[in-house]
């Protein structure tokens, strides 16, 4: 469950401020954050994900107001409740696929469950790549590993920032199916920020930032 009320954000050292519309997404449902570049999609995603703090208004996740958390508590909350997928599937290239995934529970302060890692890898068709180095993966495989990493801790929210913008139609279709499937399997709320019009038909719940008040 994501709930945004009276949210506004002022960028550092500028007079530029964005007022976001109120919205909420019930637990387990999917939402699309639409808007052109510069419309504040990434900013909103970062605020919801607890990466940005200096905002006005209320952002609650699972009935927890993020502003009420201390910085360390927010780090912890983020690690356990939120899974991020970025446009560039940035994986830690010094580590193998398996260790990249193990990093997720470790950094969130959760026990590392090898069976869970195997299960997630299997569900994404990556069993054989478990011991592979990141440099040995294809782009598609790397994206799947990034998705696996995001869902490994069974987060209640999955935030995806432009996951499809660099992909052709076929791969775009594949990735968005993967995301919605994975979110459904894990009972997570999925929020996708994009300017990619192709996704409109896939997720009905839309928050359009360009038509903000």
């Amino acid at each position: 469950m994501i709930s945004v009320r009276n949210l506004s954000y002022q960028y550092d050292g500028t007079s530029r401020a964005i007022q976001f519309q109120d919205f909420s997404i019930p637990q387990g449902e999917h939402g699309l954050l639409l808007g052109e570049s510069g419309s504040g999609k990434t900013t909103l995603l970062h605020i919801i994900g607890g990466l940005l703090r200096q905002y006005h208004g209320t952002v609650s996740i699972q009935d927890t107001a993020l502003s009420a958390l201390s910085e360390a508590a927010l780090d912890n909350f983020r690690g356990r409740q939120i899974g991020f997928i970025f446009q560039r599937n940035h994986l830690i290239s010094a580590l193998t696929v398996e260790k990249n995934l193990a990093l997720s529970p470790y950094l969130a302060g959760l026990p590392i469950d090898a069976a869970r890692i195997d299960q997630v890898l299997a569900s994404l068709g990556l069993q054989e790549k478990k011991k592979s180095r990141i440099s040995e993966l294809s782009h598609g495989q790397a994206q799947r590993v990034a998705i696996a990493r995001a869902v490994l801790n069974k987060p209640s929210i999955i935030l995806a920032d432009e996951p499809t913008s660099a992909l052709d139609d076929k791969n775009c279709e594949r990735v968005i199916s993967l995301l919605t499937d994975v979110a459904r399997q894990n009972g997570a709320t999925l929020l996708v920020a994009t300017h990619d019009q192709r996704l409109k038909d896939r997720i009905s719940n839309r928050i359009d930032l360009t038509t903000a008040p």
């Binding site: 990466l51 360390a72 970025f86 940035h90 990093l103 950094l107």
Partner: peptide
Amino acid sequence: RYDLAIMRSMGATRTK
């Protein structure tokens, strides 16, 4: 820098 930011997004504290 990106690695570190990703790790922070995964719940790593500044101290870690």
